Simulated assay, not measured.
Amino acid sequence: METLIFLIVIVAVLVVVAIAMAIKVVKQFEQGVLFRFGRLVGPRSPGLRFIIPFVDVLHRVSLRIVTMPIQSQGIITRDNVSVDVSAVAYFRVVDAVKSVIAIENVHAAINQIAQTTLRKVVGQHTLDETLSETDRINLDIREILDVATVEWGVEVTLVELKDIQLPDSMKRAMARQAEAEREKRAKIINAQGESLAAAALGEASDIMMDHPLALQLRNLQSLVEIGVDKNTTVVFPAPLMSTIGELGSFLARETAAAAAGATTPPPADRTTAGPDPVLNGATKTV
């Protein structure tokens, strides 16, 4: 009796274990691939699935998008500059059967091919193109990966360059280049400002030539601006200085004329006259 009970218990345990091994749950974001005696039976959709223990094998494959970082790669660009470039790739499985049958480890395979593709694509571009045309490089890498992974049942949805490390010497050279570029722009802007200012001053001078009082008003305005702050500066406008010079010249001429008149002898006084020979000694009175 005890032996029978023991056998019943063993059979019940085996049945429970078999049922537990036969019941499989495929989640909503997964797809199952069923093998029977090593042969492919077909895919299994999400839900509760039953298999034959020790006969069937069910592989569950995730269909969600996978984020895979691409390790930093030492790359020499087309213009012989050494850079370290890292990226990130996004992919998802679109055919669960191919991802299980066509390749052993799809994640490792995509990681390796993404690294080699990154080195290949970036090495075909110059440093300036690598820094400025990242969108085109991302698209080229994605297209190459899509061609290689389509046989694995994998679709690469996005590839983005994450970081580009430059040598210190190249950073200093680029900093000098940027500084020189900014100095060039500053000089050009300054020259354009000087040109506009010269044109405006030319127009202003033409207006002042037509209106002489405008220059006097401008001089008075300048004196007002100078006199805002308390200082000991004395300013003489140019017209005032020219007037003082002309006045000095006039006084010099007058002084010279007066000195010349003082050195000339006065004419003879004819109010008292001697005897006139014509009048035979008679006296002529004027």
Rank of each mutant, 00 (worst) to 15 (best):
T283V: 09
V11M: 10
R44M: 10
G153Q: 01
M241D: 11
V55N: 07
S82Q: 13
V15M: 05
T285D: 06
D95H: 10
T116G: 05
L247I: 13
A87G: 14
L14G: 00
I226S: 07
V17L: 07
K98Y: 03
K24G: 01
A256E: 09
T232S: 14
K187L: 12
G123H: 13
R92I: 02
T233I: 11
D128V: 05
T285W: 10
A114F: 06
L139H: 05
I5K: 02
V41M: 08
N111R: 07
T157I: 11
V150E: 08
F250W: 03
R176Y: 12
F6I: 13
S86N: 07
V147F: 07
V88C: 03
T285R: 06
E194T: 03
T77W: 14
A186L: 15
A87Y: 07
S62R: 07
H211S: 13
N231T: 09
V224A: 13
I164S: 11
E155Q: 06
P53C: 06
L240T: 09
E104Y: 06
R136V: 13
T157Q: 14
R218F: 08
D269C: 02
V25N: 01
L158I: 10
V97N: 00
D128K: 12
I76A: 12
R92Y: 02
L4D: 11
V15D: 00
I76W: 06
I207Y: 07
S86A: 15
V235W: 13
L251D: 02
I141D: 03
I75T: 09
T67A: 14
P275T: 03
P265C: 00
G38Y: 07
V41K: 08
Q124G: 04
A180E: 06
S205N: 05
L251S: 05
R182C: 01
L220K: 11
T285Y: 11
R142Q: 13
K120E: 04
I70K: 15
G123D: 03
Q73T: 04
L145Y: 07
N190F: 14
V121H: 08
F6T: 02
A191R: 12
T232G: 12
E194K: 13
L63G: 10
D269N: 04
F50N: 01
V159H: 02
E254S: 12
L196D: 04
V147A: 05
A89N: 12
T263K: 05
P237M: 10
A109G: 05
A238P: 08
